[in-house]
């Protein structure tokens, strides 16, 4: 089945999962940044975690209502309401429930590197994201290519992805260590 159909089936058949990722930024000059690695989890609709662990930790989580952004090195946790700004970001695409076509113009791309590809272009300009390609392998997203407004591509490899039946109560909430400066924004 073409990539779009595979992706929509993935959204239907995998409501919750956990996995690991590797992330690089490739500049317009082709130079690659050092790889960042981490773990992710999602529980549709709206609950997700995107925890960069190395080289410098940066944790992002949402329980569907609140967005947590925790930086252990900076000892700062920012807590804000999850608003539409997450609308067409990769997190909303992978972990949301709505149809991709709601917020994106979606098209099929030729197969490449053993994957079937689709391209999603945000219908509304989205701070930072001008295009997102998703590479599907065996019915699951395996690679994401995000292109931002400066011609920089962020490549995310979803190394492992395991369906998950349920999660602990505070899987999608960040409870930081005591010496963290917690900033609650309206």
């Amino acid at each position: 089945a073409p990539a779009i159909e595979q992706f929509e089936q993935f959204v239907q058949t995998v409501p919750a999962a956990r996995g690991t990722f590797e992330q690089f930024t490739v500049g317009p000059d082709g130079r690659t940044s050092r790889a960042q690695t981490g773990v992710f989890a999602f529980d549709r609709p709206g609950k997700f975690r995107w925890d960069i662990q190395t080289p410098q930790p940066q944790l992002v989580a949402s329980d569907g209502r609140t967005l947590y952004q925790h930086d252990p090195d900076l000892q700062q946790l920012t807590v804000r309401a999850l608003d539409q700004s997450i609308g067409s970001s990769p997190a909303a695409i992978l972990f949301g429930q709505g149809k991709l076509q709601d917020a994106f113009e979606v098209s099929e791309l030729p197969d490449d590197d053993g994957m079937m590809w689709l391209r999603a272009v945000p219908k509304r300009p989205d701070a930072g994201l001008t295009q997102l390609d998703i590479g599907m392998r065996e019915g699951r997203p395996a690679r994401l290519l995000l292109v931002d407004g400066f011609g920089q591509t962020t490549r995310i490899e979803l190394l492992t992805l395991r369906a998950q039946s349920e999660f602990g109560a505070n899987e999608f909430v960040i409870d930081p260590p005591p010496d963290t400066d917690v900033i609650r924004l309206q």
Partner: peptide
């Protein structure tokens, strides 16, 4: 100076040269 979101997207680019400074932001 590039300022970036945790997912790697560049949110703002400030370039400072002797002739002046320029701020680029998508959209």
């Amino acid at each position: 100076l590039d300022l970036k979101s945790p997912l790697g997207a560049t949110l703002a680019r400030l370039t400072v040269e002797p002739t002046g400074a320029m701020l680029e932001q998508p959209d």
